[in-house]
Nucleic acid binder design. Sequence first.
DNA 1: TATTGCGGGCGCC
DNA 2: GGCGCCCGCAATA
Length: 504
Amino acid sequence: MVLNGMPITMPVPMPVPMPVPSPPATKSRVAVDWDINDSKMPSVGEFDDFNDWSNGHCRLIYSVQSDEARKHASGWAMRNTNNHNVNILKKSCLGVLLCSAKCKLPNGASVHLRPAICDKARRKQQGKQCPNRNCTGRLEIQACRGHCGYPVTQVGRRDGNGIYLQAKGTHDHPRPEAKGSTEARRLLAGGRRVRSLAVMLARESALSDKLSSLRPTKRQAKTQSIQESKRRRMGASDVLQTKPELVVPPTTYLPTSTPTHSTNFNQSQGSYVPAGLGSMTSQWNGEIHYETEDPSYANGMYSYDMLHSPLSAHSSTGSYYQEHKPQQLQHSQYQQQLSPQQHVPVSYDPSQPISSSLQCGMPSYEICDDTSSLTSSSGYCSEDYGYYNGYLPNSLDVSNGSQSQNPSQDASFYTTSSEIFSVFESTLNGGGSSGVDLIYDEATAYQQHQQQGTFPHLTNYQQEPQDQMQSGDYYYSNTGVDNSWNIQMDATYHPVNSTDPIYC
DNA sequence: TATTGCGGGCGCC
DNA sequence: GGCGCCCGCAATA
């Protein structure tokens, strides 16, 4: 995160945010403390980039120019809840639809559908047969209990030129498929093979993550544009100079709860950023970095979020803050009692009642003080972008320098989800397994984590950029008309080594 | 048909 | 009173 030349590192700890007087106008949002219930919201000179996958306690300030912010859009299935305050819109998470049999798709991905927002529609979803034709399981709602046993909530209000969003809680379930996927599937429902649906579902999450991971913030693009131009002039080999940095010892990947801001694209909430990469400015990294000193992460406190995708680096410009609260102190002490090797994985089983560890007061997972904050980050509505199982090669030149460097950031680049769906349909049924095999599915990773009791090998994640650079299996072309993009699978593509795990 | 925003109402703490 | 949650309604896509 680049904040008008301000240091990218957040001062830790931040002062206690409540109650505080409204800060002076146009103060950097990073330095601003506010609460959604404040009578007057602070004015800031810059805004966060929209993130539809915000997670954890966070406060974001969006510009009123952001359509998504105005709509209070979210990748999570959030339903409106009445807070009896006309000035504040409150939403709570509905969780995710999972297969009761916990089946796996051929590619190893799991089923994680998006619950309908409408109660009636949601009731219809539940109990339906798993979209995986090879599975006899039923769809079940995995309720969100990430906020002291209650669903994660987010409240938003508009004030002046900003849209203030405050999230409370950390989602304790896999991400549902993105909104656009559900809609697109509905449009194409009927006569479609359920297998396609299931496979698409598996792909959707990974692809949306992938896309998001490739999309920098606008601010990032600005700051990187010049550098990227220089790199291009130096040649592709120079672009890959960061490769050695990407493979790190697995013992160093655990992030911490000490978020710092940078200009790269890492997964905002709990990225697998090794210590040595904390300052790395590779475009493959998210912008929030967690250093490894804090045992909170090392002990699995936020293990799920980290698991759910190092690839889903949503542009994050959230105002991360940390408070000095007794609860947090206790939590810290608790964590410090554990050695770095003593991971405390959050046991997660959708079929089981919420773990007591998730309840309020349990130190290892969620700080249930609404004002306490370990925050997450921001990205953009993935459903508005579309999904693909490839990457945007650097050579992809999209009309201008900024876009060419970071094409995924430009709204004009993204096709609608339905368009992408069509692409998937053609490739899913005829593209063979090459594409499917490249999927990294966050839910799968989550389950793997549960099975292994530890994190996936970091190298797999950090290896991803290399794989992407080497093995893009899609071609992208733009007709130049209506921003219409064509994505074609490269049938000639074969992984360098089919036995090597590839997460895309 | 589903989403979204709004609001009444209830129960719990 | 704050909060979560249920329900219904209307506008909209």
